[in-house]
Computed example of a mutant assay.
Amino acid sequence: MAELSGASEDQAEDIAAFRAALSKLGEDHRRVLQVLFPRIAALQERGDTDGALALVAKIKAILSDPERRPQ
């Protein structure tokens, strides 16, 4: 994984876990994430780390809620 050459071991593990989880998501969830990721990046670029982290927490809650998972 060339893009991980500067990443720490913990970051590499987080990225691998994210990719594994992403591969298990349904198409609807992937579309939602495609919309929200740029918003998270924009919040972070503006220095609104708290806003970005709050959005990440909301996404995590949605994705981990079994009632919202596609059947």
Score class of each variant (00 low, 15 high):
residue 25 L to D: 04
residue 33 L to C: 04
residue 65 D to E: 11
residue 50 D to W: 03
residue 52 A to F: 12
residue 28 D to T: 07
residue 23 S to G: 08
residue 68 R to F: 06
residue 63 L to I: 04
residue 54 A to L: 04
residue 71 Q to L: 15
residue 29 H to A: 11
residue 62 I to Y: 11
residue 2 A to G: 15
residue 32 V to Y: 03
residue 62 I to C: 07
residue 39 R to E: 09
residue 48 D to R: 07
residue 64 S to I: 01
residue 15 I to A: 14
residue 52 A to V: 11
residue 29 H to C: 02
residue 61 A to C: 07
residue 37 F to P: 00
residue 23 S to F: 04
residue 46 R to F: 00
residue 21 A to C: 07
residue 7 A to L: 13
residue 16 A to G: 09
residue 65 D to A: 12
residue 67 E to I: 02
residue 62 I to G: 05
residue 29 H to K: 07
residue 40 I to F: 04
residue 60 K to M: 06
residue 44 Q to Y: 10
residue 15 I to P: 09
residue 68 R to D: 00
residue 60 K to W: 03
residue 38 P to I: 03
residue 8 S to M: 12
residue 6 G to V: 10
residue 47 G to K: 08
residue 36 L to V: 03
residue 30 R to W: 02
residue 39 R to M: 05
residue 50 D to K: 12
residue 50 D to C: 00
residue 6 G to N: 15
residue 21 A to T: 11
residue 10 D to M: 07
residue 64 S to G: 05
residue 38 P to R: 03
residue 69 R to M: 09
residue 57 A to M: 08
residue 29 H to N: 06
residue 48 D to H: 08
residue 16 A to D: 13
residue 20 A to P: 03
residue 46 R to C: 00
residue 16 A to W: 07
residue 14 D to M: 15
residue 27 E to D: 12
residue 37 F to I: 04
residue 31 R to A: 05
residue 30 R to V: 04
residue 55 L to G: 00
residue 8 S to N: 11
residue 37 F to D: 00
residue 66 P to N: 08
residue 41 A to F: 04
residue 65 D to K: 06
residue 55 L to Y: 00
residue 49 T to K: 13
residue 31 R to M: 03
residue 26 G to W: 02
residue 41 A to D: 10
residue 4 L to G: 13
residue 13 E to I: 11
residue 38 P to W: 05
residue 7 A to S: 14
residue 31 R to Y: 02
residue 25 L to K: 05
residue 63 L to T: 03
residue 47 G to N: 09
residue 67 E to S: 12
residue 42 A to Q: 10
residue 3 E to R: 09
residue 49 T to D: 11
residue 59 I to P: 00
residue 15 I to S: 10
residue 34 Q to N: 06
residue 22 L to V: 08
residue 7 A to Q: 13
residue 25 L to N: 05
residue 42 A to K: 08
residue 71 Q to M: 14
residue 64 S to V: 03
residue 63 L to W: 05
residue 34 Q to L: 02
residue 66 P to G: 07
residue 24 K to H: 13
residue 6 G to R: 13
residue 7 A to Y: 14
residue 30 R to M: 04
residue 56 V to M: 10
residue 13 E to M: 12
residue 54 A to W: 00
residue 32 V to Q: 05
residue 18 F to E: 10
residue 61 A to T: 14
residue 56 V to H: 00
residue 34 Q to Y: 00
residue 70 P to N: 12
residue 54 A to Q: 07
residue 8 S to I: 13
residue 34 Q to E: 05
residue 4 L to I: 09
residue 61 A to W: 09
residue 43 L to C: 01
residue 45 E to K: 15
residue 44 Q to M: 08
residue 6 G to E: 15
residue 71 Q to R: 15
residue 6 G to L: 14
residue 22 L to Q: 09
residue 26 G to C: 06
